[in-house]
Amino acid sequence: MRWTTAGRTPAAGGVLAAPTSPTSDPSTPGPSTPLEGPAPHAHPADGHPAVAATAHALAGLDATGQVVRLPAGARTSAEVARHLGVAPAAVARSSLLRAPGDRLVLVLASGAHDLFPPVLAAVLGVPRLHPVGEVETVRRTGSLPGCTSPVGLAEPLPTYVDVTLAVHPVLWVPAGHPRALFRTRYDELLRLAAAHPVEIG
Rank of each mutant, 00 (worst) to 15 (best):
R2W: 14
W3H: 13
T4D: 11
T5N: 12
T9K: 08
P10G: 09
P10Y: 03
A12T: 15
G13K: 13
G14I: 03
A17G: 14
A18F: 08
A18V: 13
S21W: 09
P22I: 01
P22A: 01
S27F: 06
S27E: 15
T28M: 14
T28A: 15
P29K: 09
P29M: 12
P29C: 09
P29E: 09
G30M: 03
G30V: 11
G30D: 11
G30I: 02
P31T: 15
P31C: 11
P31Y: 00
S32G: 08
L35P: 01
G37N: 10
P40R: 15
A42E: 10
H43D: 05
H43N: 08
G47L: 05
G47M: 12
P49R: 09
V51C: 07
T54A: 12
A55N: 09
A55W: 04
G60A: 14
D62A: 12
A63Q: 05
G65W: 00
A72T: 15
G73I: 03
A74S: 15
A74V: 04
R75M: 00
A78K: 13
A78W: 04
E79G: 06
E79Y: 07
A81K: 14
R82Q: 04
R82H: 11
H83P: 02
H83N: 09
H83K: 14
A87R: 15
A87L: 08
A89N: 07
A90W: 15
A90V: 14
V91H: 04
S95V: 07
S95P: 07
L96Y: 10
R98C: 05
A99V: 12
P100R: 07
G101W: 13
G101D: 05
G101T: 09
R103Y: 10
L104V: 11
V107Q: 00
A109D: 10
S110M: 10
S110R: 11
G111A: 12
H113D: 02
F116R: 15
P117D: 12
P118W: 13
P118I: 10
P118T: 02
P118F: 12
A121H: 06
V126K: 07
V126A: 05
V126C: 05
H130N: 10
H130W: 14
H130A: 14
P131T: 12
P131C: 14
V132F: 13
V132E: 12
V135N: 04
G142T: 11
L144H: 03
G146K: 07
T148N: 06
S149M: 06
P150H: 06
P150D: 00
P150G: 06
V151F: 01
L153P: 08
L157P: 06
T159R: 04
Y160A: 15
V161Y: 03
V161A: 02
D162V: 05
V163I: 10
T164C: 01
T164Q: 13
P169Q: 08
V170I: 15
W172Q: 01
A180G: 11
Y186I: 01
Y186C: 11
D187L: 08
E188P: 02
L189R: 06
L190N: 07
R191G: 15
R191C: 08
L192K: 01
A193T: 02
A194S: 13
A195Y: 06
A195G: 09
H196G: 13
E199M: 01
G201H: 04
